[in-house]
């Protein structure tokens, strides 16, 4: 029997599996670094579904062999990962390959120590993040987006009402001009209708 393709993939798999176990050996417990507590909190608090990609590169979290997961990282990226994981205190610039911009921003803002600590009360994360940072510039603070279960890195995703209010004031000139032009058109139609109907009545 022939299994060339599958055997090949087997070897590749072996290599990645080795790297993965090696990296995990550095830290105790493979599941400990993924924080489902936050996801559960977000889903319960916001009523929206969420997944790991709010903070992680991969939507199924950091464990595994797919892109953006620990199993797929190169030697250099693994080093980066370990450095980032050691950023216990706030204020350190981190570039963790398994985290997205929001994830890295959280670590920089509050430090890994607090990330670990707030697992028991995820709402504290929002408080610690403060109300100023807004990575996607949609006018809704990252902490608010976390609580609302919306994407903090997508400017067209957020609490609909907050987005509407923010965009309304952001585009107020455009809206004012649109209102002006439509207002003029309505006035114009109105006057022309009045003129036409009165002259039609006259004709009768």
């Amino acid at each position: 029997m022939s299994l060339p393709l599958s055997l090949q993939s087997k070897n590749v798999f072996l290599a990645t599996a080795l790297i993965a176990t090696a990296s995990m050996a550095l830290f105790s417990g493979s599941g400990a670094m993924a924080f489902p507590e936050y996801q559960q909190f977000v889903e319960k608090h916001s009523g929206r579904t969420a997944n790991c990609s709010m903070c992680h590169t991969n939507d199924s979290g950091p464990t595994g062999n797919d892109a953006g997961q620990i199993g797929s990282l190169t030697e250099a990226k693994l080093k980066q990962l370990n450095e980032a994981r050691a950023a216990f205190e706030p204020g350190q610039d981190v570039d963790n390959p398994i985290l997205n911009k929001f994830g890295n921003a959280i670590v920089k803002k509050i430090g890994m120590k607090n990330v670990l600590q707030y697992r028991s009360d995820p709402e504290k994360l929002a408080t610690a993040l403060g109300g100023k940072d807004d990575l996607d510039g949609d006018g809704i603070a990252d902490s608010r987006e976390f609580l609302d279960g919306t994407d903090p890195l997508n400017a067209s995703h957020g609490d609909p009402w907050l987005l509407f209010v923010h965009n309304f004031s952001r585009y107020r000139v455009h809206i004012a001009l649109a209102v002006l032009s439509i207002g003029l058109l309505l006035y114009g139609f109105n006057k022309v209708i009045a003129a036409l109907s009165s002259s039609m009545e006259k004709k009768k």
Binding site: T49, S53, L163, N167
Partner: peptide, 16 residues
């Protein structure tokens, strides 16, 4: 259309 993105009503994992 200017102020309220249609997608904002859907949870973000569904937009991936």
């Amino acid at each position: 259309a200017l102020c309220l993105p249609f997608d904002s009503f859907v949870s973000f994992p569904l937009l991936e």
